[in-house]
Every structure is written in C-alpha cells, then in structure tokens.
Amino acid sequence: MMPTPISECLYCQKNETLDRLMIKIGDLEVSQLFLFKEQSHPGRLNVVYKDHGIEFHELSDEQRNAFMKDVASAAKAIATIFNPDKINYGAFADTLSHLHMHVVPKYKDGYGFGSVIEMNPQKVALTDTAYAELVEQFKTQLSFPVQ
C-alpha cells in the first residue's frame, strides 16, 4: 500500500476532517495532542507525531523516546483527570501514513471494556462548553497555556 501523500493527510493539512473529529489541545515535545470529539471513552486523546510518513520502527532512539514520553504525558493526564480502570493504546494507521497513538481510557462498567477500541463509534458527543472545559483541564494538567 502506498503511503498517504501529505496533501491528503488530515494531520498535515489541518483540514475540515480533522476539525470534525478532534480538537487540538497543544504541542508536546515532538507531537501534537488532540481531544477526540467522540467521547464514548471519556477523556480519549490522540498523540500525533510532528512529521509525516514515519513508521514507529524508523524513529531514532531519541525520537522514539521523546514520542513515548509525549504518549505517557497524555496518559498521565487522563489518569489524573478521569481515574480510568485501564488505559488502552493504539497505533494503527492502516489508511493514514502519519504516526499517531490513540490513548483511550477504559472503565469497567463503561463502553467497550474488555474489547478492542472502535475508531469512531459516533455514540457520545459533548456540548461546545463541555469540550472547552475538557480541553482546559488537559491544558492545565499538562501545563499548556490556558486560553
């Protein structure tokens, strides 16, 4: 399969598809952090590597460690804010050639516990105010400037 060209990458183009799916929280060391709008898993985030078309195994040790530090920071923020029973991680990218990691809190009595995460089940949407409050919580937890 051919890699997704940059011109078709929602993360690189920062296009309407990205805006429909996620809200940018801020920049981490080598990544951008996004809140998924679909919140069947309350607190679900996406950590998106800064460069396009890179596979995980192609990262240098320094790049990999920095990326995983970003992922761990996102997970720690989820754990602090939401106290989930488990956090799942997913780096799929079958159809989008841009390294990213889904960070998905799971709750024992919650949606999809004990199963593989659905990418976009389209079951739970929040109000604009609720999204804004969540973004601010993450910004505060991760020491991003709150706007």
Rank of each mutant, 00 (worst) to 15 (best):
A79T: 02
T4H: 03
A93R: 10
H102F: 01
F138W: 07
G112S: 13
I6A: 13
D27G: 01
K123G: 02
L10Q: 07
L45W: 02
K139H: 03
L35A: 00
E133G: 06
F56W: 03
A79K: 00
A125T: 13
M22T: 12
V104P: 00
D94T: 09
E62T: 12
V104E: 02
A75G: 15
I78S: 09
I25V: 14
E62N: 02
L35H: 05
R64F: 12
D51N: 14
K108Y: 00
F138K: 07
F36V: 05
V71H: 05
I81S: 06
N120V: 04
V47S: 06
V135C: 12
T80V: 03
I54N: 07
H100Q: 09
H100M: 07
S31A: 12
N88T: 09
F56N: 03
T95A: 13
D61S: 12
A125D: 05
D128S: 07
E62S: 09
I6N: 01
M101E: 04
T17M: 01
A79Q: 06
G110I: 02
Q147C: 03
K76I: 13
E136N: 12
S40Q: 05
V135A: 05
V71Y: 06
L35I: 09
K108Q: 10
M22G: 00
M22P: 01
A91Q: 13
E55G: 09
K106I: 08
L96F: 10
L35P: 02
D70V: 06
R44I: 11
L134Q: 15
T129L: 12
Q39F: 01
M101S: 09
K37D: 01
A66V: 03
V103S: 03
F67M: 14
Q141D: 11
H41F: 15
K37G: 04
S60Y: 10
K37R: 14
Y49W: 05
N88D: 01
P105E: 07
R64K: 14
E58Q: 15
V30N: 10
K24I: 04
V71A: 14
C9Y: 00
L96H: 08
V146I: 13
I23V: 07
F92Y: 11
N120F: 06
S73L: 14
D61K: 12
M119D: 04
T95V: 03
T17I: 06
T127D: 07
V30T: 14
E136T: 14
S31M: 06
Q137A: 13
Q147L: 04
A75Y: 04
H41S: 12
G114V: 11
I54T: 15
K24M: 13
M119I: 11
I54R: 14
S97C: 11
I87E: 05
A125S: 12
Q63A: 14
L99C: 14
E29T: 06
K76S: 15
K24Y: 03
T129G: 00
Q13Y: 05
P42C: 00
L59D: 10
A91H: 01
S73Q: 05
N46L: 15
F138A: 08
S40I: 09
L28S: 09
Y107M: 08
A75I: 11
V48C: 08
E16L: 07
M101K: 01
Q141K: 02
I117H: 06
A79D: 15
Y111M: 10
V103Y: 05
V124A: 03
M22L: 12
